[in-house]
Design a binder for these strands. Sequence first.
DNA 1: CGATCCTTTCAAAAGCTTCTGAAAGATTAT
DNA 2: ATAATCTTTCAGAAGCTTTTGAAAGGATCG
Lengths: 181, 181
Amino acid sequence: MAEGRIDAARSLFIRRWGEMAASWGISRTMAEIHAMLFVSSQPACTDDVMEELAVSRGSASINLRQLVNWGLIHRVHRRNDRKEYFEAEHDVWQMFDTIIRERRRREVEPIVETLQRCLTIISEERGRLSAEARKEAEVYQKRFTDILEFCGTMNTLFNLMSKAGRTGLKPLAKTVGKLVG
Amino acid sequence: MAEGRIDAARSLFIRRWGEMAASWGISRTMAEIHAMLFVSSQPACTDDVMEELAVSRGSASINLRQLVNWGLIHRVHRRNDRKEYFEAEHDVWQMFDTIIRERRRREVEPIVETLQRCLTIISEERGRLSAEARKEAEVYQKRFTDILEFCGTMNTLFNLMSKAGRTGLKPLAKTVGKLVG
DNA sequence: CGATCCTTTCAAAAGCTTCTGAAAGATTAT
DNA sequence: ATAATCTTTCAGAAGCTTTTGAAAGGATCG
């Protein structure tokens, strides 16, 4: 039964992937389904997911849909088969790009917008403040500006990374390494 | 009352920062406390936190401790005052470095270790598998190797970024931009 | 058209995380 | 040593997220 240990490796990976994702704010089941489809060479259907991960039909359905919305898996169809099957994106760099793009849209953009709004308020009120209050406002201004600048730089870098990704970021890392020292 | 809008900006930022963090798997209160200390020019004590964020003493205590454990805030003391005060790291790049380091240790390293274990199992069992099972195992091997390689590259890049960070990553981004095209 | 097969939906339940508040523990002052 | 002040702890409460399972909704087949 040499396959036993291989299957164990498969399910160990799936479980750990789910645990990791959970600590990054992604539901465990969604991540487990993703891991399962990521390692599989064949597309899987809802019943496959239900069986392998022991989840209900409802949960499988909802989580599969979310993964499709994220763009991490795709629906595929087979001839003479009404069932829907799902297949994961297998290119790790493409996956990374998708995740970064989604999270930026959902979670980073709102805070950037808030920071800009806060800075606007500060510059509008600046003239009306007492000397003391102005000092405080200037501290806020610096903090908000710092974060915005950080976001901008990270943005640029991630864009560069996803551009470089497919053709190979490893050589890039080496080059950058030399530049930085 | 020009200060009213400034205070509103402050608390808006704190709330949004908390919401963002919540979607990244960090508790809202912990993030709000962090945001509050980050924008403040003066250290704050437990009662300040309780008052501004309307949380219980227990919650303030626990979350402050966690922030200290993460290395995102520090305890500071004042003469003739028994109270403990807390002050955030204000350098955004230092903050980034701290967060990346912590999360890598807590969440990335376990999955890397698992992947290595899985690869070991596969290479051990490889010889004992039927032709069909071996084909499947080879798919797993490729997937696991791909992720490991990805982790390695990201590791290198983040190390470079935190090295470059303080002296300025913006010029670096420009340089990299030219390299990538 | 009715039967079959598959997917989606959603209210209730379960499970998980975080918070509360009072009591215990520490530390410093008198 | 005792009082005063501040911090930590933790069992129970509250709140939030996810899952379940059955019913409804769609699509395709004969």
